[in-house]
Design a binder for these strands. Structure first.
Lengths: 230, 230, 230, 230
DNA sequence: TATGAATGAGTATTCATTCAT
DNA sequence: CATGAATGAATACTCATTCAT
């Protein structure tokens, strides 16, 4: 339980603040409560409820218990808050994804399973952040958007990679690997929109089911390829 | 195939304008190009690109080729435009869903297949509208939101209904029918975020694959229920 | 009962529309109900309730039972409506004032009594119009204001005249005839703000009392009694 | 004679800012120059010249030497400015009226004289404010209007009170005390519309004359009552 | 970091007015 | 005269942002 980033507010942008920085081996599966600096916390809730354009800086100040100039002490603009927020969120996803891949066996099937499970967990435990990031991509100014998209693409390329690896090795059989990759990503993202880890459906049950689906989408093993299944 | 509703501007709200009014039997599968009155068309694009709060009335005016007061000639407020847009969109979904159910055999399996196929097609052919409706639900004022949510719930209840019917009849085997219903809905909604009907993956291939997935989620037939399969 | 200007709507400005044009001798004392063309009627009520700037042309249209272009058929602008309204009102006052003077004996005391009585009656029976004219003088555009003020000044000069005549003849004794004249005018105008001819205080009682006051303001001789002094 | 309240801008509404807070005994007769905070000053002039609806917020900003948002820093709306202005004005009148009554002898005649003199002085020295308050009553929103009217009614009830006291004690003889009260109030209000304290007619002369008139309206002492005087 | 004052540029909306039919 | 469509120019008000203290 590292002390680290309690509630002090950040300088902004680049760094993986999130909660406890995941050091140990396989803690990509463990999600503590989100402990953002208060401005990002305020921004996350506000953007989730009203969207970036529907949120005023006064709103952010009020929610973070700061004055308006207080907010500007930490961030030069509202846009920077959004960018920092989205950066922190996707950085966590990337870190966890890399860890998942690093700690899994090297075969495509294991790599695939680990990456998809990580994606699923992230969208289960970081629902709000994931939804805000998806919704507010369009609210990022061009430069920020480019930088964010680069990271998102990196994430997507990881998935593309393991799928292509699997196809190359003959363990996956999809005829449309790129579409499969997008479909699976979309599947995981969709979880954020409805699944609550504290609901009736146990986390493991959902992971299990969705993993099965994901595997079927890439046409694992002797299973059929994507098209009109024979 | 009447075209009718060219580009005349509407009174607003109530009516299923959209494209061709679907009269004949199974044309819930047929999607013509979207032919909204110009203000709704402008709103759809603008809200899609910048969101409701990120869109100005001037923007709507410019996009619809009107002056600002010209827009207000047809709608009393920006909020009414959003509400009308979302109403028109979900009304089309409801009409198509009811037609799908009405024209399919009465057994739960056929009902389920028809409804899911309809949902999928809608999110494939009405991508933008579907995404805007999802994203801007929060931008509806309370009364409008309530009215919209009532319709969305009606749609969701259709799906709940066929699933529960299937479970009752023993043809579906899920242990969490409500979660299954939400998962399937989320699956279909997700399609809008990445699938383009004019891409490499043929429509039928996607329908096929996703239907298979949907069926597996409700644990159809001899297939196993949700948990760790086999 | 002249036919004249029933309810047909006017061209605008100059003419003494009002009700029956007072032809006979001393009917400056008689006030029938106000029968304005409907646009002026609407304007009178609307301006009274909300003021010129607080009244929209749509409001005027609605109140007069016309469409907006219908209003513009009769008047080229809202400003012209105000000007016409105020013109019609002050014209009636002027006509009645002249008649009062013309039908009274030539001596200053009788002239004074007649003119003040006429002023009082006008502000009793034409309350709304008088108040609107007073309040909206500032809303007239320069040219219109000049023309209106000329008429109002003419009215004021009548009063100044009879008072100066009385002073010259030694029957009035005020040291500040101009102030006296303004005070008396203000007194009469003030009646419009509170007196209702259908209230408890009879018209004659009010006329009597106010005439007494007016006489005392100009410092009439051995002071005559109040009422219809005989 | 503290000056205090220079030109600092207010919180709004409740407080008697106006000029010097009248503390000492009989200073209800003393009127210094009006020293409103700049926004109220701007509003007073602007509303006087163009009326509430005829005044734009830009106009108010310009006149007060602020930007538009600068004005909104102090007041949440134009309506609040009007309400605060009218409140400040009538509060001064009420304070002075109460002081006039408190420092005069208890007999109805003295009370009456003091109250009427105070009313007259107020409408002489606070002309503009008095006229704006009268003219813009209709521009107050219902709640504000109710609160303002309550104060105006309190003022009117003071006058009603002393007149009814005098009638009860047999020193006043009017047959219509309520009408008399309104007539006298109207008389005083009317002074604002024409009298300038710096004109030819000395203040005392006007006070003297109008007090005499007011007394005659309530039919003081051996004088005759209102009606048909003998 | 808070407070308070301040603002350029914009935001939704309205207004008086016009024109074709 | 009505209807319906249309608009330039405003109108009240807000927003992100800044600065002095």
């Amino acid at each position: 339980m590292s002390r680290s980033t309690e509630n002090q507010t950040p300088g902004f942008t680049t760094r993986e603040v999130t909660t406890e920085p995941m050091s140990a081996e396989s803690d990509w599966r463990e999600y503590g409560p989100l402990e953002f600096p208060r401005i990002l916390d305020a921004a996350l809730q506000a953007f989730y409820e009203h969207g970036y354009h529907g949120t005023t800086t006064r709103d952010l100040a009020r929610r973070s218990g700061l004055s308006v100039p207080g907010v500007y002490h930490y961030y030069p603009s509202k846009q920077d808050i959004l960018f920092d927020l989205m950066t922190v969120i996707i950085d966590e996803l990337l870190v966890r994804s890399r860890q998942a891949l690093a700690t899994a066996s090297a075969d495509p099937r294991s790599q695939f399973d680990a990456l998809v499970e990580s994606l699923l967990r992230f969208h289960m435990y970081r629902r709000t952040g994931a939804m805000v990031s998806t919704a507010e991509l369009r609210s990022l100014e061009p430069d920020n958007r480019a930088r964010y998209v680069a990271k998102r693409d990196e994430q997507q390329r990881m998935l593309d990679g393991v799928i292509l690896d699997g196809v190359r090795d003959g363990v996956f059989a999809t005829a449309y690997p790129k579409d499969a990759s997008r479909a699976i990503a979309s599947l995981c993202v969709g979880v954020a929109s409805w699944y609550r880890p504290d609901g009736t459906l146990p986390v493991d049950a959902l992971l299990d089911r969705y993993l099965t689906i994901a595997r079927s989408i890439v046409g694992i093993s002797g299973e059929t390829a994507s098209g009109r299944s024979r």
